[in-house]
């Protein structure tokens, strides 16, 4: 049994990691590790970077093709896709968000890891409201881009 089947928490060993060069360009990380019949991510990708053998297989991202546009982040019904990017000495994480209040650009928010543990502060860089799942890009320490997966807006 995989550890995440017990805990609900993935470790970076559970999926393929992009190279440094790919991270600088920005890539989508698909934290989708179980074969569930689902494929909206494939349809959402404008450059055909996500592929699947059939509806019950795992999606695979071609990191070189991926343009880090974030369309798949809002398309994934499991809210399991994140875009990560290294920009100079900072990191950017784009994540799906379905809570209130909605953060604004420039706002400081708490950033949380896969266990909901506080990993410090981040600055909201971009908020896309396309449908009810909001897409938030938050600037964090570049060492945290593979850990930050949620935000908490300060009330």
């Amino acid at each position: 049994m995989k550890n995440y089947e017990k805990t609900g928490i993935l470790s970076t060993k559970d999926f393929i990691l992009p190279t440094k060069k790919q991270l600088k360009k920005g890539v989508a990380i698909l934290e989708c590790v179980q074969k569930i019949p689902c494929n909206p991510c494939v349809d959402s990708c404008p450059v055909g970077a996500i592929s699947m053998k059939d509806i019950n297989s795992l999606p695979v991202v071609d990191f070189d093709k991926c343009i880090a546009c974030g369309k798949c982040v809002g398309a994934c019904p499991g809210l399991a896709i994140f875009v990560v990017k290294i920009k100079e000495d900072k990191g950017l994480v784009t994540l799906p968000y379905e809570f209130l209040p909605v953060p604004s650009v420039g706002e400081q928010v708490s950033v949380l890891d896969r266990e909901g543990k506080n990993q410090g502060e981040g600055i909201v860089q971009k908020v896309i409201k396309n449908g009810k799942t909001i897409i938030v890009t938050v600037e964090v320490d570049k060492d945290l881009i593979m850990d930050v997966r949620n935000i908490r807006v300060k009330i």
């Binding site: 049994m1 995440y4 089947e5 017990k6 805990t7 609900g8 928490i9 993935l10 934290e31 989708c32 590790v33 179980q34 569930i36 499991g78 809210l79 399991a80 949380l112 890891d113 896969r114 266990e115 909901g116 543990k117 997966r149 949620n150």
Partner: peptide, 16 residues
Amino acid sequence: FIGGYHVHAAKLRRCG
């Protein structure tokens, strides 16, 4: 083990 989809469990876990 968790019987439901991992993606549903992950959503919950990252909220703490």
